[in-house]
């Protein structure tokens, strides 16, 4: 090659090397150093990401022992990061139960208590005012969401409007579950679609697949003051979620599987919400489905929601 290749220089340790090789080595070193500097912000993850968490298996592969350890770790993290004493439990689906929800649109007046209750019950990020429920104010005469508004702040109810709360419909045929590449979300025996927040990779394919805008992504770590953290937590439901994973309404399974009502229902002052077991012919929700004018959103898509709307 050229002359410059043959020219040699002397380096203390390496002895004689060609000038070009020395330059290349210098360049490579500089490049590596620059790369290390460029990704140095990653050091900020230290202490936030434990080896146990990195290696944790999928929920369905965990033994009772594994779970006990994981729950304890999560409880400790909640203490460290949020200053809250929480209890994480893992109630199982009750055999013979398939949950359904029905909302009476003749009664709902858009007061938003359900949204607020969800926000508090489920340890949502305070700064973004996140909630699994959104209430659309719709003009009477249409069901087209184009005319709806979910960001209203004025007093309700308004003349000429009706109110349509939207949350996860726990579809019988959930498109969001099919698309997940890592099985981080699935449907439980009682119909509730849950997410393993410690398995989700955050690709957000499920958000694209959901026809109802029911899924939320944790764009950042949730912020909740210690005194506002709800300590009654389910592993697959309302425990404080890590950043970078998808979450969704879980019909408050940490309550409902213990025989209580969902927080949104408890909070509703109008009695518009009816929750119950679709498999029980005597249940109130079955009566509603039998006797009222019931509809679901976007029925034509075939996802088969189990949250129904009805009018008196």
């Amino acid at each position: 090659m050229s002359d410059s290749d043959k020219r040699t220089i002397s380096l203390p340790v390496l002895g004689e090397v060609s000038r070009r090789t020395a330059l290349k080595a210098g360049g490579a070193t500089l490049g590596l150093a620059a790369f290390a500097a460029a990704v140095s912000p990653l050091a900020g993850l230290r202490g936030r990401l434990s080896a146990q968490e990195l290696m944790q298996r999928h929920y369905k592969e965990l033994s009772a022992d594994d779970k006990a350890k994981i729950f304890e770790r999560l409880e400790n993290e909640a203490k460290e990061r949020y200053g809250a004493d929480v209890k994480i439990k893992d109630p199982k689906a009750i055999p013979g139960v398939r949950y359904g929800y029905a909302i009476n649109l003749s009664v709902c007046n858009g007061n938003g208590a359900c949204m607020e209750a969800c926000h508090r019950e489920n340890n949502h990020d305070r700064s973004t005012n996140q909630s699994y429920i959104r209430v659309f104010e719709m003009p009477i005469g249409t069901t087209d969401f184009k005319h709806g508004d979910s960001t209203y702040t004025h007093d309700v109810p308004r003349e000429g409007k009706y109110y349509l709360p939207v949350q996860c419909f726990q579809c019988e045929n959930p498109p969001c579950v099919d698309v997940c590449p890592v099985e981080a979300t699935w449907q439980e025996e009682d119909g509730i679609v849950v997410v393993d927040y410690n398995w989700c990779i955050g690709c957000r394919y499920c958000q694209a697949a959901c026809p109802y805008h029911a899924r939320r992504f944790n764009w950042k770590e949730p912020q909740i003051p210690a005194e506002e953290v709800n300590p009654d937590q389910g592993y697959l439901s309302n425990r404080i979620r890590p950043a970078g994973v998808v979450e969704k309404c879980h019909f408050c399974l940490h309550r409902t599987r213990e025989g209580r009502q969902p927080a949104c229902l408890e909070a509703c002052p109008t009695g518009a919400r009816i929750f119950g077991n679709l498999l029980d012919p005597e249940s109130e929700i079955r009566t509603v489905l039998r006797t009222k004018r019931v509809f679901v959103l976007k029925e034509e898509l075939g996802a088969r929601p189990t949250l129904f709307y009805f009018f008196d």
Binding site: L49, L54, H58, P181, V182, A184, W199, C200, I201, G202, C203, R204, F217, N218, P242, A243, G244, V245, V246
Partner: peptide
């Protein structure tokens, strides 16, 4: 870079 949890890449 689009993944919320690149640390869990191995799940794939």
């Amino acid at each position: 870079v689009d993944l919320g949890r690149p640390d869990r890449f191995w799940h794939l």
